[in-house]
Amino acid sequence: MRAVLLTLVFLAGLGLAGAAAVVTFGLYNVSAQAGHLPGVSWLLHTTFRNSVALRAPSMEDAPPLDDPDLIALGAGHYATACAFCHAAPGEARAATAAAMVPAPPPIEEAVAQWEPNELHWIVENGVKMTGMPGWPVEERGDEVWAVVAYLVAIQNGQAPKLPEASEGVAYCRTCHEAIAGPVPRLDILSATYIEDQLGLYATGVRPSGIMAQAVSVVEREDFAGLARELAASTTAPTARAIAGDGAAGERLAKQGTRDVPACTACHNGEAGKGPVLHGQSEAYLAQHLKLWREGTYQHNAKMLAAARDLSDAEIAALAAWFASLNSEE
């Protein structure tokens, strides 16, 4: 028995010494042109599939993935953040992307064998040693569903055409003047407020993977001019029908406490203490109230206090009431 144990210890030591030699002397060829040793690709891919299947989130919190606005939002993000590696549906990848090891597959191939919740995990977390990055910010899995909705549309052969490449205000308008639902209207907001939010997105103080990507393709010195143009817009996305209980939302919005003022004290439909919410998208308002309630947003103490104890029903009612109003700004 002793001889067996000594043999095992010797073999383990020999293996460690060999591994140390490979690392120390650079014996392993890391060239992408050399590719992997036989069997390594299969091992990594099998590990990848099983790891994703184990960790993929439940579909219980998924929004309707056939929502055209959600799909359009995902398409807009995909166009600037993902298309370089995976290309647009039906198009060839860039030669540089195709030369990666492992090569990012064309998007139709990349999404073919995955369930929506598995796609969500991959987009949110990325994959080590593949070049696939994670979502630009943490705790914004709600945004990731937009990209998943677009990928599911690809699976179903119903993906919309990606927006044309554009810059400056034209780039911003591909979402903010064309997509309702999860995208806020900017024409009812002041230029000062828009510029401030661009700065918060750029620094990560206001976490958003979609907006982090968007502001990364705009020069910081252009924020002020961009904000003025967007605030002066006369075009807004087509409004959706109001689904929530607006009457209950009105009562709640006008009800304040000693510690937390009424919503309407700041959000009164005019430029002032807070951003204009009158006529804003119901879906957008509800989602962002949840972000305040959950502490994902931290950059305004009053909003944290106001949203902390709201129930889902109260959030839905508030969103419905503000969305049903007309802005005076």
Results as ranks from 00 to 15, higher is better:
D187I: 02
T7F: 12
F322C: 00
P261I: 04
M1E: 13
D187F: 05
H36S: 07
S327I: 03
L291E: 10
V276Y: 00
A243D: 12
V9Q: 05
A317T: 05
Q287I: 02
L5H: 07
L230S: 03
T47K: 05
I194D: 09
I188P: 00
V137G: 00
V183M: 08
P182R: 05
A72N: 03
A3H: 14
Q213Y: 03
S190P: 05
F10M: 14
G168W: 04
L44A: 06
L318H: 07
G168C: 09
N29C: 07
A81T: 06
P68Q: 09
I179P: 00
G269D: 04
F48E: 14
V127W: 03
G35Y: 11
A191R: 00
E60A: 15
K290P: 00
C82F: 11
A313S: 13
A323V: 01
G134P: 05
A253H: 07
R308M: 13
E60C: 03
A153S: 14
A170W: 01
A56G: 00
A262V: 01
A3L: 10
A110M: 05
K161D: 15
K161M: 15
H120Q: 10
A97S: 13
Q287F: 03
G74A: 06
C175A: 12
A79E: 10
M129T: 11
G157E: 12
D309P: 01
F10I: 11
S41A: 15
S41T: 11
Y193T: 11
L304P: 02
H77W: 15
T296S: 07
